[in-house]
């Protein structure tokens, strides 16, 4: 009885160990270089491009944030320059000479 339990326990341990392996052994401590410690989980790709997890980012979409920030900065610069010149803050840049 005890022996059977031990066998069952041992088998469970093996299953658990395999399960843990599948679950991924990434613990964040195996670094390739300082600050570079990520590793893919078992069964998952090192690179997602071309894999079933490829997010297929559209470069045009990815560029939109910076385009927006650059446009804001340009408008802000006009407002601030006008403010320094006239002492008046004009929000609508089309009204700035």
């Amino acid at each position: 009885m005890i022996k059977k339990s031990l066998v069952t326990l041992a088998a469970s341990a093996v299953i658990l160990a395999v399960g843990a392996g599948v679950a991924g052994a990434y613990d964040g401590t195996k670094c390739k270089a300082p600050g570079v410690c990520w590793e893919p989980k078992p069964g998952y790709p090192e690179k997602v491009a071309g894999s079933k997890y490829d997010p297929k980012h559209n470069p045009a979409e990815l560029a939109k944030q910076q385009t927006a920030l650059d446009a804001q900065a340009a408008r802000n610069a006009k407002r601030a320059a006008n403010f320094k010149k006239t002492g008046k803050w004009v929000q609508d840049v089309s009204k700035i000479q």
Partner: peptide, 16 residues
């Protein structure tokens, strides 16, 4: 090292 020692059991991933 400053590194967190993760417990893989509580990691997240696709299809899980």
């Amino acid at each position: 090292t400053g590194l967190p020692v993760r417990d893989p059991e509580f990691g997240t991933r696709m299809d899980h």
